[in-house]
Design a protein around this nucleic acid. Structure first.
Lengths: 227, 227
DNA sequence: ATTTTTATCATTGTATACAATAATACAAAC
DNA sequence: GTTTGTATTATTGTATACAATGATAAAAAT
């Protein structure tokens, strides 16, 4: 039983936001399995909060497509399948290239610095072999590109998919060779964006996604259903 | 033990769902303008419900990117700009073609019938010149393709964008010539999917989006900020 | 034994009460 | 006049109470 507590560091966040993050994570790591229905009273008891923030989190999970909701019955977990993962990479392949192109056009110096710093840290932890940190930095790198694209729809779409991607990445980046390749590919993309080379940024990004996708397809843990 | 089935005719929507639909619509038609903050108590008073369903609707609007939320302060309307509209059509151009391709591969007879019926009605109302109905049927046509694609991410992404698109369509389809062209283009796409011609379905859909986009760009009402 | 009905319980839906935080107005200090 | 501090008010955040609906089990009817 995990209780949600207010600490000084996250005092700004409201309970319903924390409940949302918690439930999202729990679903993604498989604590709640596909088809399982979530009970408001039980959850509020476990988390030490009332039903109100639980319900508000449910409405968010519903919009993020992580649960399905039926009036007077409640929410059941959707989880995601191997097909969903392939789906995500197909869609990413389609739109992340364009996002990188837009980033090359519109990126601010602030975000360029953010990317540079992220890359340096990524290099450091890749040498060190810290998969957890690498995965986190990978996310930061990609999100910087999303934000740089200046496209509201691309940002929203990619960020929504991203919480699925993060989960997958945790597995694929535990392979040191894939981690090293990822760093090299990121570096090349960064330089293309730095040089405002739209065409190259797009091509390299597409290749990067394709590589990640191919790695996943042949990975035994990920080619099977993940719920 | 008798199995109890839930018919979809007895919609019995919960209040928070209705509040969500209402607020979404109000934002899209411009009742609440960009930057305007939404007051829970005021809204619950106006709508004759308590704050609870209002807040739950807020959490949904937040996830749909229609408002921005700040803890302890509340939500403010995001609205959408001319750039956002161009954004939407650029992203649609990128992914609806692929969606149609997938639909051609995976569509069920049930959805084919749905498309056919939609098209017939569209023809009827186009001749009649009922812009309201045409717009609704246009949405139905595209959503049938989304659903046929069997891709969870494509469905989610496109449907999320779709509520913006619907609003734009209401304006562009009031032009009888554009309405007629739209019908012809839909019919061609339908036949490509019916014949399981992936390539053609993709190409025609891309062209269809491109046409719609071009019409919008030169439309005086839509080339300016719409909030 | 099976089905139907009825009663009971569990769970969700909504309203309201209270707590915590932010916004505002006003007064005091400089 | 501007700024700072403080009291007041408005608004959001959460918990709880009650209502409505669905699920379940027992009883009655066939």
């Amino acid at each position: 039983m995990r209780r949600i507590e207010r600490r000084d560091t996250d005092a700004a966040l409201s309970l319903h936001s924390k409940v949302f993050e918690q439930l999202k994570n729990d679903i993604l790591v498989g604590k709640y399995k596909q088809g399982e229905s979530l009970n408001e009273l039980k959850l509020s008891d476990e988390m030490g909060v009332s039903r109100t923030p639980i319900r508000e989190a449910f409405r968010q999970l519903e919009r993020e497509d992580l649960v399905t909701y039926t009036p007077n019955i409640g929410v059941v977990v959707r989880g995601f399948s191997a097909e969903d993962i392939l789906d995500i990479y197909q869609v990413r392949l389609l739109i992340e290239g364009m996002t990188a192109r837009r980033a090359a056009e519109n990126i601010t110096t602030e975000l360029l610095n953010e990317m540079e710093e992220t890359l340096e840290l990524e290099k450091f932890y890749t040498l060190k072999g810290d998969a957890q940190q690498i995965s986190m930095l990978d996310s930061r790198f990609h999100e910087a590109i999303y934000n740089a694209s200046q496209s509201r729809m691309l940002i929203k779409t990619l960020k929504t998919m991203h919480h699925y991607v993060k989960h997958i990445r945790n597995i694929s980046l535990s392979n040191p060779e894939r981690a090293k390749n990822t760093y090299e590919e990121h570096k090349a993309i960064y330089e293309a964006i730095l040089n405002r080379d739209r065409e190259l940024a797009e091509i390299l990004t597409e290749q990067h996604i394709r590589n990640a996708s191919e790695y996943i397809e042949k990975h035994p843990l990920l080619s099977k259903t993940v719920d």
